Amino acid sequence: MQNSHSGVNQLGGVFVNGRPLPDSTRQKIVELAHSGARPCDISRILQVSNGCVSKILGRYYETGSIRPRAIGGSKPRVATPEVVSKIAQYKRECPSIFAWEIRDRLLSEGVCTNDNIPSVSSINRVLRNLASEKQQMGADGMYDKLRMLNGQTGSWGTRPGWYPGTSVPGQPTQDGCQQQEGGGENTNSISSNGEDSDEAQMRLQLKRKLQRNRTSFTQEQIEALEKEFERTHYPDVFARERLAAKIDLPEARIQVWFSNRRAKWRREEKLRNQRRQASNTPSHIPISSSFSTSVYQPIPQPTTPVSSFTSGSMLGRTDTALTNTYSALPPMPSFTMANNLPMQPPVPSQTSSYSCMLPTSPSVNGRSYDTYTPPHMQTHMNSQPMGTSGTTSTGLISPGVSVPVQVPGSEPDMSQYWPRLQ
């Protein structure tokens, strides 16, 4: 039975679970980093996980050691009161100082060594604690504590007292930064006198190289990059290397530039699409467009005044059976039934097929058609009795279509119309 579990990581490298990497692998990681390889490249070359490479390099940059820390136990506290007071002093002298600059000053002034120097995250935590204590304490208590930490007896009751030896409130920041720059020169002199001055200088240079600022491109470089971006948004590694040799930039910087440029292009394309949609959409909808001609068919113009009344309900007709019959029939052209047409008796099958359309009241044959006459024609229609054979009435077949029909004066039988409509 094995005491430890061995495995293979996602890159194909072998590791022992819970145990640190061998010293030979750690040394190779540092050597590759000094030669300029990126952590992701080191991870692929040595088949070590990216997190492990970053952790080893980060500890090497901070402490200069590649040895693993002790497994188990607690780390001794490195942010001692003396170190905290120095950090507060540096922050007062130059409020814009960075944590890694404070760390360098602690090393250069001999406050800490490589073994007990606090990390950048520890210094940031100390600065946050100082800021929170400043908010919790009152103004007087804060000034007393700062005077105690600074070891001075001057008056701290006013704002300019934060910067000793100065009279203009805006000047101390520059003086403090100048003092810090002077301390940086002392850093070089002190570290050069040490035993491991060369190694420390190499480590600091490598650290500065990794902690780079934003790349500033010249106009020629920007023009070359934009020209390549117009050709393709995704250049391959050969195109990037050719462009890197042409404009004297690292291939990694060119790759990052193209990634950022593609993101910018997507944002601009989104804005262009929004403007295009806004320009195509009308600002207001016309009133006429809300009524579609496919839904509402136009009603033909009436030929006679009587045809303006298109349904039985508008003429005072309360018989719903006839109203439904007229509205359900398709529109037909106007025609006239003459008196000489043969009077065919209704076929029983045809009569039964339209039995649902006729009223059940037996008085329908005896009703006159003056009910369908509009009010303004009552006088004219009353002067001509319906009993004469020459009287013409208008029957409504569908809305908007008038059918003048000659009705025999002897017997106005409704059943004569249905064979004609089939």
Results as ranks from 00 to 15, higher is better:
Ala139Met: 09
Arg44Gly: 03
Ser122Tyr: 01
Arg26Trp: 01
Ala33Ser: 10
Ala99Met: 04
Gly110Pro: 07
Met142Phe: 14
Ser74Lys: 07
Gly73Trp: 01
Ala99Phe: 00
Val8Gly: 04
Ile42Asp: 02
Thr25Met: 07
Glu31Asn: 12
Ala131Leu: 11
Pro68Lys: 02
Ser132Glu: 08
Thr113Gly: 14
Arg103Ser: 06
Leu21Glu: 02
Ile42His: 03
Gln10Tyr: 02
Val16Glu: 06
Gly72Met: 06
Ser49Pro: 09
Leu106Phe: 05
Arg44Gln: 06
Cys52Tyr: 02
Asp144Gln: 09
Thr63Lys: 04
Glu93Met: 10
Asp23Val: 13
Phe98Cys: 06
Ser119Val: 02
Lys91Glu: 08
Val120Arg: 15
Pro20Cys: 01
Asn150Met: 06
Met142Glu: 14
Arg19His: 05
Met137Thr: 12
Cys40Asp: 00
Leu149Trp: 07
Val48Trp: 02
Arg125Ile: 00
Phe15Met: 02
Val120Gly: 08
Pro81Thr: 08
Val14Gln: 11
Ser96Val: 11
Thr63Asn: 04
Asp23Asn: 12
Ala70Asn: 12
Gly138Phe: 13
Gly36Gln: 05
Gln136Pro: 11
Ser65Pro: 05
Asp140Gly: 10
Leu57Pro: 00
Glu93Ile: 12
Leu127Val: 14
Ala99Gln: 04
Ile71Cys: 15
Thr63Met: 03
Tyr90Lys: 06
Ile71Tyr: 10
Ile102His: 06
Gln89Asn: 13
His34Ile: 13
Pro39Ser: 08
Val111Gly: 09
Ser35Gln: 14
Gln89Gly: 13
Gln136Trp: 10
Asn9Ser: 01
Leu32Gly: 01
Arg77Ser: 06
Asn17Asp: 04
Glu93Val: 07
Arg38Asn: 05
Ile123Val: 15
Ala99Ser: 08
Leu21Tyr: 07
Cys112Ala: 06
Ala79Gln: 04
Leu130Trp: 10
Ala37Met: 13
Val83Glu: 01
Pro76Glu: 01
Arg38Pro: 05
Asn116Glu: 05
Gly51His: 00
Gln27Gly: 10
Asp23Tyr: 10
Tyr143Leu: 11
Leu149Thr: 15
Lys86His: 13
Asp23Ser: 06
Val14Phe: 10
Arg19Lys: 13
Pro22Asp: 06
Asn17Lys: 15
Cys112Lys: 05
Ile29His: 04
Ser65Leu: 05
Arg59Glu: 01
Gln2Asn: 14
Glu109Gly: 11
Ala99Leu: 02
Tyr61Phe: 07
Glu101Tyr: 07
Ile71Val: 14
Arg125Ser: 05
Val84Gly: 03
Tyr60Asp: 00
Thr113Phe: 11
Ala88Met: 07
Ser43His: 02
Asp41Ala: 07
Arg69Ser: 04
Phe15Thr: 00
Tyr143Ala: 13
Glu101Ser: 08
Glu31Trp: 15
Asp144Gly: 09
Ser74Met: 04
Asn124Thr: 05
Val48Cys: 05
Ser121Gly: 04
Gly36Lys: 04
Asn9Leu: 01
Gly72Asn: 05
Ile29Asn: 02
Gly141Cys: 12
Gln2Ser: 12
Ser49Cys: 07
Val14Asn: 10
Asn116Leu: 11
Asp144Thr: 10
Glu109Ala: 12
Ile45Gly: 07
Pro20Trp: 03
Pro39Ile: 10
Tyr143Gln: 13
Gln135Met: 12
Leu146Val: 12
Lys91Asn: 05
Ile42Thr: 03
Met137Leu: 13
Gly7Lys: 15
Ile29Pro: 00
Tyr90Glu: 08
Ala37Asn: 15
Val16Phe: 15
Ala131Met: 11
Gln135Ile: 11
Thr25Gln: 08
Gly13Gln: 03
Arg128His: 04
Val16Asp: 07
Ala88Asn: 13
Phe15Leu: 03
Ser6Cys: 14
Asp140Thr: 13
Pro68Gln: 02
Tyr90Ser: 08
Thr25Arg: 08
Gln2Phe: 11
Arg147Gln: 14
Val111His: 11
Glu133Ser: 14
Ser6Val: 15
Trp100Phe: 07
Cys112Leu: 06
Leu46Tyr: 02
Ser121Pro: 07
Val8Tyr: 07
Ile66Asn: 03
Met148Tyr: 13
Glu62His: 10
Thr80Gly: 04
Ile87Val: 08
Tyr61Trp: 08
Ser122Asp: 04
Tyr61Gln: 06
Asn114Ile: 09
Arg147Met: 12
Gly36Leu: 03
Gly13Val: 01
Pro39Glu: 04
Asp144Glu: 13
Leu32Gln: 00
Val48Pro: 04
Ile97Tyr: 15
Asp115Val: 13
Ser132Trp: 10
Asp140Pro: 11
Gln89Met: 10
Ala139Trp: 12
Ile102Cys: 05
Leu11Asn: 04
Tyr90Trp: 09
Gly51Met: 00
Ile102Gln: 06
Ser4Asp: 11
Gly64Val: 01
Asn150Ala: 14
Gln2Val: 14
Asp115Ala: 14
Lys145Gln: 11
Asn150Ser: 11
Asn114Arg: 12
Val84Cys: 10
Arg69Thr: 04
Gly110Gln: 14
Arg128Lys: 08
Gly73Gln: 03
Ser122Phe: 00
Ile56Gln: 00
Ile87Asp: 00
Gln135Arg: 12
Ala79Asp: 04
Glu82Cys: 08
Asn124Pro: 00
Arg147Cys: 11
Gln89Cys: 15
Gln136Glu: 12
Val14Lys: 15
Leu127Pro: 01
Pro95Ala: 13
Leu46Thr: 08
Lys145Ile: 14
Arg69Gln: 06
Ile71Lys: 15
Pro39Asp: 05
Arg92Lys: 13
Ser74Gln: 05
Ser122Thr: 15
Leu127Cys: 12
Asn124Trp: 15
Tyr90Val: 14
Gln47Val: 03
Leu107Asn: 14
Lys55Gln: 02
Leu21Asn: 00
Ala139Ser: 10
Pro22Gln: 07
Gly73Ser: 05
Leu107Glu: 10
Leu57Met: 04
Gly138Trp: 09
Arg147Leu: 14
Pro76Gly: 00
Pro118Ser: 02
Arg92Thr: 15
Ser35Val: 11
Glu82Tyr: 14
Leu11Pro: 00
Arg26Ser: 02
Arg44Glu: 06
Gln47Glu: 01
Asn17Met: 15
Arg103Val: 06
Leu21Gly: 03
Pro95Leu: 08
Glu62Ala: 14
Ser108Ile: 13
His34Trp: 10
Leu46Val: 09
Asp144Ile: 09
Ala131Ile: 10
Ile45Thr: 11
Lys86Ala: 15
Asn17Val: 15
Pro118Thr: 05
Asp41Thr: 08
His5Lys: 15
Arg38Cys: 05
Arg92Leu: 09
Gly13Ser: 03
Lys28Tyr: 05
Lys75Trp: 02
Arg69His: 09
Leu146His: 15
Cys112Ile: 06
Glu109Leu: 09
Leu21Thr: 05
Arg105Thr: 10
Ser65Glu: 13
Leu11Ser: 03
Glu133Leu: 09
Phe98Pro: 10
Val30Glu: 01
Trp100Asp: 04
Glu133Lys: 14
Pro68Phe: 01
Gly18Asp: 01
Met137Ile: 11
Ser49Trp: 04
Arg103Thr: 02
Ser132Thr: 12
Gly72Phe: 00
Asn116Lys: 15
Tyr60Met: 00
Ser24Pro: 10
Phe15Asp: 01
Asn129Val: 09
Lys134Glu: 09
Asn50Tyr: 12
Gly18Cys: 03
Pro68Asn: 03
Ser49Arg: 01
Arg103Tyr: 00
Arg26Tyr: 01
Pro81Arg: 08
Val14His: 15
Val53Met: 00
Val83Gly: 02
Asp41Tyr: 05
Glu109Ser: 12
Gly12Ser: 00
Asn9Val: 04
Ala88Trp: 15
Arg92Cys: 13
Asn114Ser: 11
Gly7Phe: 07
Ala33Ile: 07
Thr25Lys: 14
Gly110Arg: 13
Glu133Ala: 13
Asn116His: 13
Arg67Met: 08
Val30His: 02
Pro81Gly: 06
Ile87Cys: 07
Ala79Ser: 14
Ile56Gly: 04
